[in-house]
């Protein structure tokens, strides 16, 4: 079947989609967006987290056909999404094209510091706080953390733990992740 939906602000079309296929599979294998990770395919790890009509979900548990006509934001579109949230999008030229999204990487001129590439505040904070080790959990955590900061700009540690309770990390022990989210929240409140 064919599925038409919006990904990172731009309309996309996926063809030859199997009826039992997940949104995660469509994003990774049909649209070439490997940001959302596939680790468990059963909702346990959160590494496949994307936003569906604004709401964080495990894309491995959403049937492809269910996203027809709906809006998905993946980690590849997060920087632009955050920028628009701050700036407001009026021109209609917002969003991230598939091509840009496929090429998106946190490389820039320096992958250690994130310099020279467009990052959302939460992405920059993850780099600055050293919250990325193998990085497999990172995309899901970024999407979940960014959504929490949008809803709740001044989270307590309890709020952060709760919001990220569906995202597993096997490397960091979570402390640096907590630091990163605190840092993003602090910078956000300074900016206001």
């Amino acid at each position: 079947m064919r599925v038409n939906f919006t990904v990172n602000g731009r309309p996309q079309e996926a063809d030859d989609v199997w009826e039992g296929e997940s949104l995660l599979y469509v994003l990774r294998e049909r649209l070439g967006l490997p940001g959302a990770k596939n680790a468990c395919e059963q909702g346990e790890c959160g590494s496949c987290t994307v936003r569906l009509d604004g709401v964080p979900v495990c894309s491995c548990l959403v049937a492809a056909g269910q996203v027809e006509g709906r809006e998905v934001v993946t980690v590849e579109g997060l920087a632009e999404y955050a920028r628009q949230r701050d700036a407001g999008c009026r021109s209609g030229s917002c969003g991230t094209s598939l091509d840009e999204a496929q090429r998106w990487a946190a490389h820039g001129t320096d992958s250690q510091t994130g310099e020279g590439t467009q990052l959302s505040p939460v992405q920059q904070a993850f780099i600055d706080a050293g919250a990325v080790q193998c990085g497999f959990c990172t995309p899901g955590l970024l999407v979940a953390a960014d959504e929490m900061l949008e809803r709740n700009p001044t989270p307590t540690d309890e709020d952060i733990r709760e919001a990220l309770s569906g995202n597993l990390c096997r490397c960091t022990g979570y402390e640096t992740i907590m630091n990163a989210v605190r840092l993003a929240a602090a910078r956000q409140s300074e900016a206001v």
Partner: peptide, 9 residues
Amino acid sequence: VASPQIRNR
């Protein structure tokens, strides 16, 4: 129930 992502769906 589970996690925020699951409770959202």
